[in-house]
Lab assay of single mutants.
Amino acid sequence: SKDTIRINGIDIDVKDLHEEWKRLVEEALKRGDEELAIELLERALKE
């Protein structure tokens, strides 16, 4: 798994994120759902 995830052309540092969150965000991006990916990231970062 990578340490960054690219959303809207912005590389976001996710190395401190739990693997499960990372996977969910990557799944959302694979489906092209950037809005969901951002929402998941925000939730993950609050934890």
Rank of each mutant, 00 (worst) to 15 (best):
R23D: 13
L17S: 01
L24D: 04
R23H: 10
I10N: 08
I10Q: 11
I38E: 06
D33Y: 06
E26F: 11
E42C: 14
I5P: 02
E42V: 07
N8M: 09
E26G: 05
N8D: 07
T4D: 04
G32N: 07
N8C: 09
W21T: 15
L17Y: 04
E34T: 15
E26K: 11
K30A: 15
A28F: 04
K30D: 09
L17I: 14
D16N: 14
I38Q: 14
E19F: 08
V14K: 03
G9W: 05
S1C: 12
D13W: 10
E39M: 08
I38S: 12
A28Y: 05
E26W: 10
E42S: 06
R23Q: 15
A44C: 05
E39L: 06
H18C: 14
I12D: 01
D16H: 14
L40G: 00
K22Y: 08
R6P: 03
I38T: 06
E26Q: 09
I38M: 13
E35F: 15
I5C: 01
S1R: 08
E27N: 05
K22P: 07
N8G: 14
K30S: 15
H18R: 11
G32Q: 04
D33K: 05
E39D: 06
G9N: 07
K2D: 10
L36V: 06
D11K: 06
E42W: 03
K15N: 09
G32T: 00
E20W: 05
S1A: 12
L45D: 05
W21N: 14
E20N: 15
G32A: 03
V25A: 02
E19A: 05
E27I: 05
E27T: 03
I38W: 15
L36M: 11
D33N: 13
A44D: 00
K2G: 14
A37I: 05
G9S: 05
K15T: 14
E19T: 03
E20T: 06
K30R: 12
E42D: 11
R23C: 07
L40N: 01
I38G: 10
E39I: 14
L29W: 05
L24V: 05
A28D: 00
E47V: 06
D13F: 08
V14C: 14
I12Y: 15
R43D: 04
E42Q: 10
E27K: 02
K22M: 12
D3R: 06
S1G: 13
E42Y: 05
G9P: 02
I5E: 02
E34N: 15
K22E: 08
E19P: 15
A28Q: 01
E35N: 15
G32I: 01
N8S: 09
L29Y: 04
E20Y: 14
I7N: 01
H18F: 06
D11F: 06
L40Q: 01
L17N: 01
E35G: 14
E20P: 08
W21D: 15
A28P: 00
A28N: 00
E35W: 12
E19R: 02
G32V: 01
L24I: 06
N8P: 02
D13P: 08
D16W: 13
L36E: 06
D16Y: 15
K46A: 13
S1D: 12
A37P: 01
K46C: 06
L41Q: 00
E27C: 08
E26L: 12
W21K: 14
E19I: 05
L17H: 01
L45K: 13
E47A: 07
A44E: 01
K46T: 08
G9M: 06
E27V: 03
T4V: 14
I10D: 04
G9T: 03
D11H: 09
R43Q: 13
V25D: 00
R6Q: 09
R31Y: 08
V14N: 02
I10C: 10
G9C: 06
W21V: 15
R23G: 12
I5F: 02
A28M: 05
S1P: 12
E27G: 04
D3A: 09
L29V: 09
V25Y: 05
E27P: 00
L40T: 04
L24T: 02
